[in-house]
Nucleic acid binder design. Structure first.
Lengths: 254, 254
DNA sequence: TTTAATATGTTTAATATTGTTCAAAATTAA
DNA sequence: TTAATTTTGAACAATATTAAACATATTAAA
């Protein structure tokens, strides 16, 4: 067996059994442990597995672009789905929608199959890839520099690109929202895009799970007055709900 | 046994058994190892197998989210891979590249893993999704309306978006090219984008398999003088090659 | 036929892969 | 913590493979 063939076999093995050991591989392929070590070092360097003391572990498969995005979707998944089902009630046929990037908004995109003649404008690659499955939805993509982690575009060109459009409704996310601190994000790139969406839509819906209410994150990018409706989940406290209601913020949680 | 026949037999063998070795093949076909090595080098160059130390392995089929795009890649696959390997020779570290959409250019994107500090600007979703796997490549996406069939953006906004950038090299495709008829496409949308790429790059490389030489398609969008290098495959006729060479068009086919 | 072009074989120096040894580093057990 | 054990990676050697240069044979063209 040749070296490359052996490396492929090792890769298969580590994917199947999640972990492998140097000693076992040396016996199985009838080569020295040093050779296996060299193989593992090379595969580790390419990011195809993770080297450990005595062996190696499998990595999350980067072959599918959106796989590690899918994993992130897991956090607070139930709350997010709940929020998205509420948000979907505000969508109407013929709407032109801005969709922010992020795992919550991705969930919303999966609920849009039954509307007629929607147009969605987004900077999120996972959302585009999802919406290409729906014949009832036309999609516009915001251009700009790709962020490989978020699988979305950002930057000056993206913001300017957004200004080419006008939407009837914008659905956006945030990492924190509070009466006094407004809407804030952990990421400056992300906040700039969201800000542009808000500025170019008739109605703005902020999707924000209850754990983020009255929390402030790193970058404030809009005041609470900029949003027309705050959509959260049923775990939101009565205090928070009445706080927003008393400040004339429309808040929906069920 | 003739050379071509032997190569086809080698190809069959490597497809069946996943791997072959130089020594075995030399004995089986009763030729020197040097001949086998030359065969394997040629087949590797065309992307039909992967050369390894001591033999060769079957090519791994690319996995990509955009699955029905993969199907289209089938046509003239060998020619396309051959062309792309030639095109890749013109890429240098630190290049800023425009990459047109289309299956040929998609293949090119899969060959870009070993360069340093590339920036790729494209309107093709499959290419973006492929390049997100490469940490050495920064990607910019051209915004605009999504064409669900081609998985690429097009339209006025896309063309204007391209003008925000300047590339050192543009790699573009076409459905036809001829001395008198220039560069033409079957699709008006596609041609507009390609035209913008051509207008904003220092050097333009046209990737065009030999079946499209001296053919004219529906929409002419550029003259032959707009391109700096025509890259085609080794099946191009001598007449065509000298025709282009005599008209001062740099043509590369091997 | 002769000539040119192409394919194949041989030799050889350079390169790649693998195995062995051993000191350093990491892990485990006491 | 310390000591025993295991694992590691660097250095070197042995072997296998490669590619280049040149020689020879085969095929195609004039």
């Amino acid at each position: 067996m040749q070296g490359e063939e052996r490396k492929r076999a090792i890769l298969n093995k580590v994917q199947e059994s999640k972990s492998v050991e140097v000693e076992d591989l040396a016996i199985e392929f009838n080569v020295s442990t040093m050779t296996i070590r060299r193989d593992l070092a090379e595969l580790d360097k390419k990011g195809l597995l993770v080297r450990t003391h005595g062996g190696a572990l499998k990595t999350e498969n980067e072959i599918n672009v959106f796989s590690n995005f899918d994993l992130r979707i897991g956090d607070n998944k139930e709350k997010k789905i709940e929020i998205c089902k509420i948000a979907a009630r505000f969508i109407q046929d013929n709407d032109i929608l801005f969709l922010d990037c992020g795992s919550t908004l991705f969930h919303l995109s999966t609920l849009m199959g039954n509307f007629k003649n929607l147009r969605v404008i987004t900077n999120s690659l996972p959302i585009v890839s999802e919406l290409l499955n729906y014949p009832n939805i036309k999609v516009n993509l915001i251009g700009g520099e790709m962020d490989p982690n978020r699988k979305a575009t950002y930057g000056r060109i993206s913001s300017e690109n957004i200004q080419e459009y006008h939407a009837t409704k914008a659905f956006v996310g945030a990492d924190g929202v509070s009466i006094t601190g407004g809407i804030s994000s952990y990421d400056e790139k992300e906040s700039t895009i969201t800000k542009s969406f808000i500025a170019n839509a008739d109605k703005v819906f902020l999707l924000c799970d209850s754990t983020k209410l009255e929390k402030n994150s790193f970058v404030k990018f809009a005041s609470i007055q900029n949003i027309d409706c705050l959509i959260t989940d049923s775990k939101a406290s009565k205090e928070h709900i009445s706080l927003y209601a008393n400040n004339n913020i429309k808040i929906v949680y069920s």
